[in-house]
Design a protein around this nucleic acid. Structure first.
Length: 485
RNA sequence: GGCGCCGUACCCAAGUGGUAAGGGAGAGGUCUGCAAAACCUUUAUGCGACGGUUCGAAUCCGCCCGGCGCCUCCA
């Protein structure tokens, strides 16, 4: 089977064929850095993270570009209102660039915690003003844009295919339905490539049309094409950006180059909170830094991957708690496999005889088939749990050997680790030595003696005490193991 | 008003023509000094309602009900 991707452009799954054999150029709309990241960012970037991870797993040399928007988004309409970053800088009483810097760091901090692999290039809009001006100038020269009072607008009427992504025919759009029509525009649907800046506007640059700043949509076109070429393989983003953002990107890019802009458009769905849209206006935005206080980042990641990227994800404590338990179950098995490997590695007895049969190849195949089908991570995780059950059975039995366990460990590392990114780098081992671990091991030995003498009150007290310290004791046939909660 | 999505057990969630994955929770059992973990069994003749197409539909078509999103900044 081969990789199939749901392409918004054609509204169906298509077999993935890169423009250049063995290579993938991919761009994803990044965050506007004027506040801490929220769970919506988490869903989006975790989703695209497994797409990048899987493409790389399949052997594609993947160049992943994700912008940082540090200027240009306005609070109301795309072309009106206040600059959000400028607004935040006034509120925090710091320079806009300081706002941008601190929230950019915050963003990467959160994404790192979620195990999101960093983009190869994270271009900033303010670092590409020249490219944006150049593109606007080119579009004027080619007759697709016009200047009016120091601002530059894209003339939507000049691009017949406008609306092909979002399937909104221009003539059916109600002009000024909710936003007052800008008098400078020839057509209400025209959008700004460049905006004239007032004197008090802090972030502004010199241009052929006077002092100003770039329009919202321009940065993504200018930066993606700069690093990925005039036509590239994949462009991703949130569904809410299909219109107008991505539509405008297509219009300005294809008019500028005369070529197709993007081959596959991938859109991820939104997060809801208690069934309601999450948004600033509703005041129900959940920041990641807050969410992480209650759920570890990898639980959040696992929770996200347990639903498909094109489905909405409802963020509730009940659902998170369920995911948390399931995740722990999966991790427990991986931990036990590793413990067993260390233990067997040290012992003389390799227990080679009668090794149970485990169809690891079959599990791997099922996993990959799920991922091939438009990155169906929930189904892939289902396969992992099927495998889990059989591995637990092997672990509970007396028949296993190092070779089999190493193969099992390899599969977990490959599928759950490399592809899904849900196994932490550091998974404590109860067998490995080291200061605190030795101490815990010593306490467990004391308890073993108490148990040998049937001093149940004492042994239970030790168990409870360790539990209160976050250390869980498990008595097994061949001894006691422990793990941190 | 225009465009679009969704409705699967108590909760979360795959499945898009061949007879309901997986996780959580619940019940019973095995193991255990007791726990915990793990394993086994069990929990939707049923996939919002009603019609239709088909040998066969959760899956396709129609209609209705309910929820949500976009059209305005948002991942």
């Amino acid at each position: 089977m081969s990789l199939n991707i749901y392409n918004t452009l054609v509204r169906q799954k298509e077999e993935f064929k890169p423009l250049v054999e063995g290579r993938v150029n991919m761009y994803v709309c990044g965050p506007t850095v004027y506040g801490h990241s929220h769970i919506g960012h988490a869903k989006s970037y975790v989703s695209f993270d497994i797409i990048v991870r899987y493409l790389r797993y399949l052997g594609y040399k993947t160049l992943y570009v994700q912008n940082i928007t540090d200027v240009g988004h306005l609070t109301d309409d795309a072309d009106e209102g206040e600059d959000k970053i400028a607004k935040q800088s006034k509120k925090d009483r710091v320079h806009p660039m300081q706002v941008v810097e601190s929230y950019t760091r915050s963003y990467f901090e959160d994404m790192d915690a979620l195990g999101v692999v960093r983009p190869d290039i994270s271009p900033r809009a303010t670092g590409h003003i020249i490219e944006q001006i150049e593109m606007a100038r080119d579009l004027i020269k080619k007759g697709f844009a016009y200047e009016k009072n120091g601002s530059v607008y894209f003339n939507v009427a000049k691009f017949k295919e406008y609306g092909k992504l979002s399937r909104r025919p221009l003539e059916e759009m109600e002009a000024g339905a909710r936003v007052e029509v800008n008098k400078e525009k020839r057509n209400p649907a025209d959008f700004a490539l460049w905006k004239k800046a007032d004197a008090e506007h802090i972030m502004q640059w010199e241009s052929p049309w006077g002092m100003g700043f770039p329009g919202w949509h321009l940065e993504c076109s200018a930066m993606s094409m700069k690093y990925l070429g005039e036509t590239f393989d994949i462009h991703g983003g949130g569904m809410e950006n299909q219109f107008p953002h991505h539509e405008c990107e297509i219009a300005q890019s294809e008019c500028s180059t005369g070529k197709q802009f993007v081959k596959y458009w991938i859109h991820n769905n939104m997060v809801t909170v208690g069934g309601q849209k999450m948004g600033k206006s509703l005041g129900n935005v959940i920041n990641l830094k807050d969410a992480f206080k209650k759920y570890t980042p990898l639980v959040v990641r696992f929770f996200i991957l347990q639903s498909h990227y094109r489905s909405t994800l409802d963020f509730t404590n009940e659902a998170l708690d369920g995911a948390s338990k399931g995740y722990e179950k999966l991790l427990n098995t991986v931990r036990n496999v590793r413990n067993e490997i260390e233990k067997l590695g040290k012992s003389e007895n390799q227990k080679n005889e009668d090794v149970p049969f485990l169809d690891l190849t079959g599990f791997k195949k099922a996993f990959l088939e799920a991922m091939d089908d438009d990155f169906n991570s929930p189904q892939a995780i289902g396969v992992l749990f099927d495998l889990n059950r059989e591995v637990n059975t092997v672990l509970a039995g007396s028949k296993s050997n190092l070779k089999l366990l190493n193969e099992i460990n390899g599969i977990y590392n490959e599928l759950a680790g490399t592809v899904l990114g849900i196994i932490p780098d550091q998974l404590e081992s109860a067998v490995a030595g080291g200061g605190e671990n030795d101490l815990i091991q010593f306490i467990i030995e004391l308890r073993a003696e108490a148990r040998a003498q049937k001093l149940w009150v004492m042994s239970d007290k030790i168990r409870d005490g360790l539990k209160n310290l976050g250390i869980v004791i498990e008595d097994k046939k061949d001894g006691t193991t422990w793990r941190r909660e």
